[in-house]
Design a protein around this nucleic acid. Sequence first.
DNA 1: ATATCAGTTGAATGATTGTTCAACTGTTCA
DNA 2: TGAACAGTTGAACAATCATTCAACTGATAT
Lengths: 119, 119
Amino acid sequence: MKEKEQCDCDCDVIHEDKVERARAVMPDAKDICDLADLYKAFADGTRLRILWALSCEELCVCDLAVLLGMTKSAISHQLRYLRLANLVKFKKQGKIAFYSLADDHVKDIFERGFEHVRE
Amino acid sequence: MKEKEQCDCDCDVIHEDKVERARAVMPDAKDICDLADLYKAFADGTRLRILWALSCEELCVCDLAVLLGMTKSAISHQLRYLRLANLVKFKKQGKIAFYSLADDHVKDIFERGFEHVRE
DNA sequence: ATATCAGTTGAATGATTGTTCAACTGTTCA
DNA sequence: TGAACAGTTGAACAATCATTCAACTGATAT
C-alpha cells in the first residue's frame, strides 16, 4: 500500500535500502529547522564575539560596542537576535542594560566548536 | 604608554575593567572567522539533513536528491560547500560518487546541538 | 525644565546565499 | 558510435541578513 511519494528530484532511487534507512533516522522538519536556527545564531563573527565576551563578563551595550569597535545600534540589533534565540538575557539597572549568557549550555556549544576549529 | 585605540563605536567605555578582562580572553580574528564558518555549514536545513543522512549511510547524489526531494544540482552545490568545509568526503566508483562524513567529529557536533534544541 | 547619555527601533542599503536553469564532463551499456 | 545517466558547474534570481542612519524612549543629573 506504500505509494510512491511525490518528489521534485530529477532522478530515480539508486540504493533504495540505504535511502530508506537514512529516512528512518531523519528528524522531523520542525527539529531540523530549530537546529539550523540555533547554528545560524553562532554563524556570524559579531554574534560569536558577543557570546564569547558574555561568557567571560556581564557587559552592557556600550561595553560591547567599545570592545568590538562597533556602534551601539549594530550591537543592539545583534543582542535582539540573540535574545529572541534565547541565548542571552539581560537585567536593566537605571539606564544600563547588563547582558549575560542565558545559560552555561550556550558556552559549552561554542567551546566544543572551537575545539574542532583548532583541530 | 597604552594609547587609546581607535574605535568606530559611538560611546565611551563604561566598565573599563570588565571590558579589559573580556578583551583578554577574546580569540583572534582568524579563529573567530573559522568558527563562524564552521557554524555556517550547519546553519541550513538542507545541509543539516545531508549531514544527518550521511552520518547514518554512505549515499550518492541521487540517493540524497530522492531522500530530500530536491534536484541533483541543488544537492551537488551543497555537497561542494560541505566538501570545501572539510565536513564530507567522497569516493568515485564508475559514474557514482559515494559521499560520507569526513570524520566522526562532525557527527558529535550536530548531535550535541540537537540535544540543546530538545531542551 | 533641560541636557545628556544608554539603549532600542524601523527603514534603507549592500552583501551574501540557496535554488534553479541550462550546458557541460565522463562513464556505462547497447 | 551514440544514447542514457550520474554528477558538476556558472550565471541568474529571489530571499535573507548585517550594518548604517536617523529618530525615538526613558533614566540621570545639573
